[in-house]
Computed example of a mutant assay.
Amino acid sequence: MYLGDEAWPDLESYFESESLALVPVGSTEQHGPHLPEGTDHLIAEALAREAASRTGYLCTPTVNIGVSPHHRQFHGTMWVDPPVFREYMESLARNLTYHGVDRIVFVNAHGGNVQHLREVGRRLHDDGTAYALEWMWNESIPELVDDCFEVNGPHGGPKETAMIMHIAEALVHEDRLTEARDDGLVDWGRETGRQFGARTFYDAIENTDNGVLGDQTDATPEKGERLFEAATEQLCKLSEWLADRDETELLPREHV
């Protein structure tokens, strides 16, 4: 069920019987020369709406702009400052609790949002308002991501390219995949942008001139479909698990 498609009288029965909501969260930021700036929010919304369709749980409208100042040098990147993002997401979550929701899954597709969504979840948990989890799609299927691509990349790489090929193939500039790979940073790893254990970069452009990492030519719509189906299955299972929890399991523990 997608909240934005429903009339308010038709939502009453949902809130009477269910207490879980899926909230897709992404970003609007550069994803290299080959992918749309909406890559992250397109992925988040597609996964959340598909999981909602399969499970019957509620999917809210998507939060399209997140914490992305580290991509600001590239044309069109949009962002809000971290404190503003956290306050907005907490306010949105508390809005849902007004209608009876006390379990929330932030269906996230942007790494820059992770720590802030976790902090929002902690705030809501600490005062017993709601139990909110941050869920990042690729972290739910790490083995499959590794199996699909010889050289993956955490941003604008083959996994995101494949997902958009599956979700919205018309938005992919397939004639620029080789350019994306050759002008980006293909060989990256744990030590990229680090010296003696310290992270030495703040902005994406300090690591990659065109904003992307990995080998984009390794992406295909078929791989994207495999990733999408596997991640959706994980999200459905998480939703069912959370919905089945007794309320007492989700409340903060008493001081020892």
Rank of each mutant, 00 (worst) to 15 (best):
W79S: 15
Q195A: 14
G153V: 06
R72P: 02
E169D: 15
L35V: 03
E174H: 12
C59E: 07
N108E: 12
M136R: 06
M78G: 03
C148Y: 01
H116M: 11
G197Y: 04
P158H: 03
F15S: 05
V107A: 04
A7R: 12
T55W: 01
D244C: 06
L22D: 05
Q73V: 13
S17D: 15
R123C: 04
D126S: 13
I104R: 03
L3T: 05
L42R: 07
P221W: 09
H99S: 15
T161V: 00
T97R: 11
A243S: 14
E134N: 15
G156Y: 00
V23C: 03
R86K: 14
T39F: 04
H125C: 06
E249Q: 14
A230T: 10
M165V: 02
G193T: 11
F15Q: 05
E87V: 00
K237P: 00
D146M: 01
D126I: 01
L238H: 03
R190N: 11
P24C: 13
C236T: 09
P252C: 10
L92G: 01
D244W: 07
T161F: 00
V212S: 06
Q234I: 03
E222H: 07
L92T: 01
E29M: 05
Y57R: 08
E150S: 11
P9M: 14
E12R: 13
G214A: 10
C59T: 11
V84F: 04
R123N: 15
E29Q: 10
F201K: 08
H125F: 10
L47E: 09
I167M: 04
G197W: 03
E174Y: 02
D102F: 03
G4E: 12
E87N: 07
G214L: 10
G156V: 00
Y14L: 10
D147R: 09
H41I: 02
D81T: 04
L171M: 12
G157H: 00
Q195T: 14
V80K: 00
G197M: 08
R86E: 15
Y14W: 13
H155F: 02
A168W: 00
V120W: 03
D175L: 02
V172N: 06
G26P: 04
P33M: 08
A168E: 13
G112H: 05
R86W: 00
Y14S: 05
A7T: 13
F106T: 07
E45L: 04
G224L: 07
P69E: 12
Q195C: 08
R94P: 09
G32F: 02
L235I: 14
G214Y: 06
T220C: 06
N207W: 12
A243Y: 04
E45T: 12
G157M: 02
D127S: 09
E18G: 02
P69K: 03
W135D: 02
L133T: 08
I141S: 00
Y14V: 10
